[in-house]
Amino acid sequence: MTDTNHLPDQDQEQPLISHLLELRQRLMRVLLVVLLIFLAMFYFANDLYTYLSAPLTALLPEGTSMIATDVTSPFFAPFKLTLVASIFLAMPVILHQIWGFIAPGLYQNEKRLAVPLLVSSVFLFYAGIAFAYYVVFPLIFGFFTSVGPENVDVMTDISSYLNFVLKLFFAFGIVFEIPIATLLLIWTGVSTPNSLAEKRAYVVVGCFVLGMLLTPPDIISQSLLAVPMWLLFELGILMGRILVKKNKDEDDDEFDEEFEDAMHEEETNHRD
């Protein structure tokens, strides 16, 4: 006779195994895309680093340049930059694979909102990086290169510079996701636009605290991170108010339709 005592456990394990296999498959796709982008860009690794260092090298005193204090830095710094750039460029594919993994577990109304959120997340992440490169870097590097003693030549190590800018890229990329996070808090019912607006003073203080922790210790870079954080928070509240109003209108329309159907059914029954 067949022992059926463990069949329920086997039925529960089978979906778990299939989910793990799907997750592995999607991770392999992501790694493959990142590898292909990396191989395509590695030939231009030195050019990429030259472009990345332009905001600083343009402000260096005449006759000075960036230096490499480690023997392996001239190779590993562009290598690391190319790898990180490959991951950044593969972000749409990464988010698409994440979406494909979680989409089957979402309701239809959640799917309608999730797709714009994913697209907006990618756009805002790239916008944060662009803001850091084109707005923040010229200002903070101009400040740092102008406040040093006159008898000190500014010659930044290429690895130190790379770590510094990648940290700022990541910080600004994440910070520009604040509208999405705020919208999710409102959408899931964790908070409301009015409740978040009442905490505005605490949020402003928190923005400057995070700006102090995530940026170099100068008021310029702290403000350049804190002010956009606050403005993006306000944008999230505005989007939340629009979302709440839209959902309310949809609920009212649905209620009106149900009411009309009920009245029509009652009239039909009365005639019969």
Rank of each mutant, 00 (worst) to 15 (best):
L113H: 05
M239W: 12
Y134N: 07
Q12P: 02
T215I: 09
D261N: 11
E267G: 13
G105D: 04
F233H: 08
T64C: 06
Y49H: 08
I180A: 12
G63L: 13
F208K: 15
E266G: 04
A40G: 14
D9Y: 01
V84S: 13
A262E: 10
L59H: 14
F131E: 00
I180V: 15
P228N: 01
F172H: 00
F259W: 11
G142M: 14
A103Y: 03
Y43E: 10
I17A: 15
A85K: 04
W230Y: 12
L124R: 04
L56E: 06
M91A: 14
D47Q: 04
S160V: 01
I186V: 08
Q14C: 08
E150W: 13
D253R: 08
S160F: 02
D218C: 01
V244R: 06
M239S: 12
F170G: 12
L16F: 13
I87N: 00
Q12M: 11
L113C: 01
Q97T: 06
T50N: 14
V190T: 03
Y161M: 03
V204C: 02
L95Q: 05
F143S: 11
F42I: 15
Q10F: 02
A68C: 00
F141L: 15
F259A: 14
F88P: 00
Y107F: 12
N46M: 06
L168T: 04
V115H: 03
D3T: 01
L117T: 04
P179F: 09
Y49P: 05
V204L: 06
S65N: 10
V136L: 08
G142R: 13
F144K: 10
P179W: 08
Y126D: 02
E234N: 05
K245G: 12
A132G: 01
T182E: 03
V165Y: 01
I174K: 00
T64V: 05
S159T: 12
D251H: 14
G63V: 12
F76V: 14
L196Q: 03
M91K: 04
L20C: 08
